[in-house]
Simulated scan of single mutants.
Amino acid sequence: MASSDADVLKEINAFLACETPQAWLQRALCEPEILLIDHANCEKKAASTALRMMFRYVEHTDLLNKMSRLAREELRHFEQVLAIMQARGVEYRHLSASGYASRLHQHVRTWEPARLVDQLIIGAFIEARSCERFAALAPLLDEELSAFYLSLLRSEGRHYRGYLELARNSSSEPVEDRIVFFRELERAAIEEEDPDFRFHSGVPISTQAEDLDASGQFVVS
């Protein structure tokens, strides 16, 4: 990992309240197809979110410029994931959405500019968590996927910073209290049990006792 990428990751880890649990990493190794399919879905949804904000907030020139660039990059990432899937014979099929984003969005305030600020803060957390998971997965994956995930750190880190900067610039008041509020919600979504494995899901509910160590956690070999 380049020093600049390491600096981005250090900043992101300080922004997030927790690391990805070992149980999630173990499940990711056992579910490579779902990991890739839902990663592709995440890239599409990220592009869709950026476009939706561009249509809603046409008076915010800085937002329009940043979201336009972000949407293009996210769609390019989607194409890259799709190409990897095709090369590996992974069929792109429908998957139900993770509850991760909805857990955050249900707490978005309904008046402006508070609504915009909250959505931007949530975007920062989603991008930051993606970076953290790319870095956590990279040492455990094959050479191609490892290199690809590490290559995403810089652009996704830029997206995280962009969302956070827009949130601060869109409010006449400090937004730190809202960041703290959503940080705790995000931590709970990552550390609590989750019935479905997805790219942003929480701790998988195990049905295989042999995958657990004495503390009840999955063991990553």
Score class of each variant (00 low, 15 high):
208 Q>I: 07
133 R>Q: 05
50 A>V: 04
143 E>R: 14
68 S>V: 00
42 C>V: 05
13 N>S: 00
49 T>D: 07
51 L>I: 14
5 D>E: 14
201 S>G: 10
38 D>G: 10
5 D>W: 07
199 F>P: 03
206 S>M: 01
214 A>E: 13
143 E>T: 13
36 L>N: 08
190 I>E: 05
198 R>I: 00
78 F>G: 11
120 L>N: 01
131 C>Q: 01
51 L>G: 11
185 L>K: 09
114 A>N: 08
78 F>Q: 07
73 E>M: 15
218 F>Q: 09
205 I>T: 01
10 K>M: 07
118 D>I: 05
16 L>S: 04
55 F>T: 13
157 G>Y: 03
67 M>P: 10
51 L>F: 14
101 A>Y: 06
1 M>Y: 05
45 K>P: 01
39 H>T: 05
20 T>N: 11
121 I>H: 12
138 A>Y: 06
94 H>M: 07
79 E>T: 09
103 R>A: 04
121 I>P: 08
100 Y>R: 07
114 A>I: 00
86 Q>R: 15
177 D>I: 03
80 Q>S: 02
92 Y>K: 12
152 L>S: 03
203 V>T: 10
173 E>R: 12
141 L>D: 05
193 E>Q: 12
103 R>E: 08
127 E>G: 11
122 I>G: 01
125 F>K: 10
137 L>F: 10
169 N>K: 15
145 L>Q: 06
111 W>V: 06
87 A>D: 14
79 E>N: 13
107 H>K: 14
53 M>C: 07
153 L>M: 15
144 E>D: 14
60 H>F: 04
157 G>V: 04
56 R>E: 08
50 A>C: 15
216 G>E: 07
105 H>D: 07
48 S>H: 09
